[in-house]
Structures are given as C-alpha cells and as structure tokens.
Design a protein around this nucleic acid. Structure first.
Lengths: 119, 119
DNA sequence: TCCTTTGTCAACCAACAGGTTGAAAAAGAA
DNA sequence: TTCTTTTTCAACCTGTTGGTTGACAAAGGA
C-alpha cells in the first residue's frame, strides 16, 4: 500500500522493532531468540518481524523449523539520504538568511516596502 | 507518550508530512499556504502540523492570525545518528564475517588433502 | 509412528491515526 | 461595534496497529 519510505519510517517508529534491529546487528537470530527478552507473546514478535520484512529492513531464510532473521541495512541508506537532503537544504537556507541579515544596514527594524502577499 | 525517536520516525512515515517538510526547506509558511496543494481539508493539515510539532520537526510562531511554521532540522540528526549507528554496526559485522570466510580453507570439500590455495 | 520444537494463521479486541464537518477562538479590518 | 481571515477545537467515522488466544503447519527427534 504505502510507499517504501513510509513503510521504512513506520517500521522504525516502534521501540520494540528498533530494539530488534539493534539486536540483529550482533548477528542473525531466530524468532524465539528475538522474542525472549520481551514480555509480549511470540506471535506479537512474529508480527513485528513481518512489518520489518515488508519494510525491507530484514530478510528471512530457513533452517529446519527455524526462520533466521537477517538485517538488511540498505533501507537505512534510503532514509538517511532523505533526511540528509532536507537537513542540508534547511541548513543552507539558514546560512543564506544569515548572510542576508549580515548584509543589512545597521538599523534594526525598517519595515517599509513589505513584500506583497500572494493571492 | 512515546519516546522522541518513535515520534520522529512516526512523523515522517506519512507522505503528506514528508511533503510538508520538503516544502518548508524553501522557507517558513502559514497553515493555509501549506494546505493549498493538497486535496484534504485545512483541519487535516493542521493536524499533520501538530504531529510534526510534537515530534520536534517544526516550531510555530505567531504573526497576527497567522501561525508561521518553521522547520527545525535538528531532530533529523537524532534519526540519522540512530540509522548510521546500526547501519555501521551491521556493515562492520558483515566485513568481519567476510574476513573470516576468506581465512577458511578453500571450498566445502577439503577432506581430499587439498592444500590451501587462495583467499 | 508419535511427540516436540518452531513459527504462522485466524479471529478478536482496544487504542490510535487520518480524515470529515461544524463551531468557535484570535486577531485585524471596516 | 460588526465582519473577515486564519486557525484550532470537538465530535464523529473508518481503517490500521499492536496486542491477545487458540489452532495448525512444518520439520526433526524419539
């Protein structure tokens, strides 16, 4: 349904899921292993993993009855790219404004000739 | 209620809100100005802005009846830091595994006295 | 074969998210 | 004062989320 950026951000908007991601940087793990630290049911963790999988944050393979979960950090790049882009643009705009203000004559407030509103 | 990272990720999990953020890199804007491009009601956009504000993504000042919205990109750093940290850890682990595999004797069938050939 | 381990599926529930409409507040303009 | 603009609040509706429990499937081990 939602685009991949939305799914990715939404997937990491849950503290349990972020915790699972943190755990997975130490190595692949099974559903039971991942569920162990939490008070919730195994099924709840299984659902969390599905959300992470749909977001492309993890992939899963098979080892007998087990379904080892593997972290796929590429999606992080997508998010980081988005974040950095707009943080950078905001920063640049701020710096331009800074220069503009520095170039202004000394008088603190001269509000003559205010720009007209757009219709 | 939720922690600030959760609020931040959740705030950006909606395409309309990401669009609003993109728009705000061009400069501050009022609620009506921000609402104009969308098919939804002004109230709906007002709600989106509240979510962004609660997440610390924007701040709002006052100018007569208007409430100019200003982008605060510092939260992005919080998210980027989180993302980069775990992406980096995952990457490092991958590289260690790579080295480990490279150090192994060649191939799966080495019970036939094959001397080590190449990394 | 039967039993155990591991995980998912299905149905259900309370809470929340994103949208609507209508009313009202806040500030200026006439 | 009254009228207009801009924005929020309140109530409501619908779909989604995160959780539950119970049943079941899949794969090995006894």
């Amino acid at each position: 349904m939602a685009d991949s950026l939305s799914r990715a951000f939404a997937a990491l908007a849950d503290p349990t899921r972020r915790d699972i991601v943190a755990r997975l940087t130490l190595g692949d793990a099974t559903v039971s292993e991942l569920a162990a630290p939490y008070a919730v049911s195994l099924q709840a963790v299984s659902k969390h993993l599905r959300v992470l999988e749909d977001a492309g944050v993890v992939t899963r393979s098979r080892d007998a009855q087990r379904r080892p979960v593997h972290l796929e950090a590429e999606v992080f790049d997508l998010m980081t790219t988005w974040l950095e882009r707009y943080r950078r643009q905001a920063q640049e705009r701020y710096e331009r404004l800074d220069t503009l203000l520095a170039d202004l004559p000394n008088g603190s407030d001269f509000h003559e000739g205010a720009p007209d509103e757009r219709p």
